[in-house]
Design a protein around this nucleic acid. Structure first.
Lengths: 337, 337
DNA sequence: CCCAGGCGTAACAACGATTACCTCATTCCA
DNA sequence: TGGAATGAGGTAATCGTTGTTACGCCTGGG
């Protein structure tokens, strides 16, 4: 049942020293072919496996990277993680995933605990802007999706503001004058930037930003549903909706469908499953979480390989995918009540 | 920039021995209040953090559990992982996630590498049936979603066969005689069981299992689309479809929608986003990945706590949620060509 | 024929914390 | 009052691997 085979056991079986056995295992060339053969034979006869904990302790770093996202269950982050895991696998690294669940102190605690494990690097979706907690250590960090306060590190984000601007311009081009905005809390950087893009587009066209058409407290689909209902019940309801996040889009879509409001245009920031199957199909701003994950992993690996150049700021452009819902023209008079 | 504080540094600062400092840190009661205070003071003055690698090496196990699923990006598994992570967090454990991506040898390699890290336990969605690779070690393992070959361990699954039977019976009750079955490869246990449930239901009603109505090679939505098209193009097409997995449902739904075949009934094994927003809304067999994850974590933790009772086989029942698509009655004559 | 120098190896320490075991008082009870 | 029990704390060994240093052996140039 239990038989921990140590390196010294292998060495004994191969009639050599532990250090030499270690050399063989780590591919050190300074070992004679004969000795190498004996060690290798002993290794698989005894079924020896390196103890990675001991190895990491000795080496000072663990072959592991830590990933912190907001929610693992969110399809967006799940895709990011999946891609990071793939990249890590290719490099022989393990991935420890954690989520901050938007809890205020979790992030610092997680980083702390990961550093106690001596992770080789970190990929973080920053939630708080106070990043003092990782100030002093030298662990390479790459931030994704959002910028860290003013912590000097690589960042990979989407062109949130530009994308939002594009999306709203698209709606305006079809003649909409009253475009609602629905998003998560503006405390979250992505929401803030997308909101800024929304404002940009309206102002370009000389349109006012109407308070009753802006809902920025939708942290989940349920809230998005509630707010969308309120929009539709306004005396002068919007003729188009720009949803700043897939999650909120799910809520908005649900309401539009329930009320059979196929006359209201909509664009979603972020694609989602079945967006193309709905009637009308939903026009989206396509963002690739896979690409985000891949680029982040690449940056981190470069740092692990000793790249000490200045922090790189990678911005991923977005593409608008017209599918129907974004090309609906405003109906004559959309009085709701 | 770098200042590794060791336990002995703390001890020195508190004018005591490393052992006593260790006692304080691990909450050993046999330390005087005064000494304890001095040590604690030294700890936060120096900013000491335990080196978890060193601790784990000494203790023999790491405060980490390994999770192996098929795909991290799959919303189903993402939810499972998220729930496991939450449970692990509460217990102070880290979670290393990996995916086998259905590659033949990955699973064994992953388990191997996780055991080399001395993970405290494993939660696995077995892909291969040959589990010899984890035979000899004593690491607690809990299998989820599928049964391991005949490896004695806790298993948490859904009532796949019973659920499928319920779903198909539901369709038959509405008068369908030609019910198509669409699933992943039958090499995957869940698919096999759901197929068995499908057959059960047909046989109960004295209906034949028609080969041309059974597609069991849909590993992704694209394949499901293709097969659904073939179904609809049959001389005598099905009047209802039972999709054995959310992923295949996405494909089937897409085709039905594109062809505007609102006359074809459908039930999906597994809920998915927007299933209730489609027209018609999709009747599903609701399975809770969160519950699966939670129960698996609970089982594992019980084992970690020294539970040595016989392996437990937990089966989670499923609930049919009628939403419309499953209650469509067969149309008079559904000739397609 | 001698010595520098490279190669293969061995012995040992170190990584940082914990555990097993031991000491020295003090206290409590027969 | 003797002696066991209890409390507080220390010393050294250990976890398994790898970096360091040193040593013996063999080869080739002078």
């Amino acid at each position: 049942m239990k038989k921990p085979v140590r390196l010294s056991d292998v060495a004994a079986a191969a009639e050599t020293s532990a250090k030499t056995a270690s050399r063989v295992i780590n591919g050190d060339p300074r070992v004679s072919a004969e000795t190498r053969r004996r060690v290798e034979e002993a290794v698989d006869r005894l079924g020896y496996r390196v103890d990675l904990l001991a190895r990491s302790l000795r080496r000072g770093v663990d072959d592991t990277i830590g990933v912190i996202v907001e929610s693992i269950a969110d399809p967006f982050f799940a895709a990011v993680i999946s891609e990071i895991e793939l990249a890590a696998l290719r490099r022989g690294l393990n991935v420890i995933v954690t989520s901050n669940r938007r809890l205020p102190n979790r992030e610092a605690a997680i980083v702390d605990s990961l550093q106690q494990r001596r992770v080789a690097g970190l990929i973080i979706t920053p939630h708080t802007s106070d990043l003092s907690y990782l100030a002093s250590t030298g662990t390479p960090v790459v931030f994704v999706d959002r910028h860290p306060g003013n912590f000097p590190a690589d960042v990979v984000t989407f062109d949130d503001r530009g994308g939002a601007r594009t999306a709203v311009r698209h709606l305006l081009r079809y003649g909409h004058q009253r475009v609602a905005f629905i998003s998560d809390d503006l405390g979250v950087e992505t929401s803030r930037n997308r909101h800024a893009g929304y404002v940009d587009a309206l102002q370009e066209s000389g349109l006012p930003v109407v308070g009753e058409l802006v809902a920025t407290d939708c942290s989940d689909a349920a809230m998005a549903r509630a707010r969308t209902c309120e929009f539709l019940d306004l005396d002068e309801p919007p003729t188009a909706i720009f949803s700043a996040r897939s999650e909120t889009s799910l809520g908005a879509v649900k309401v539009l469908h329930d009320r059979k409001r196929t006359d209201i245009a909509m664009v979603s920031f972020g694609d989602f499953a079945l967006a193309d199957v709905l009637s009308p199909a939903i026009t989206v701003l396509e963002q690739s979480p896979e690409l985000l994950g891949r680029l982040a992993a690449e940056r981190l690996f470069a740092r692990l390989d000793g790249d000490h150049s200045d922090p790189v700021n990678t911005v991923i452009p977005l593409r608008l995918v017209p599918r129907g819902s974004g090309e609906i023209v405003p109906s004559g008079g959309g009085a709701g009540a």
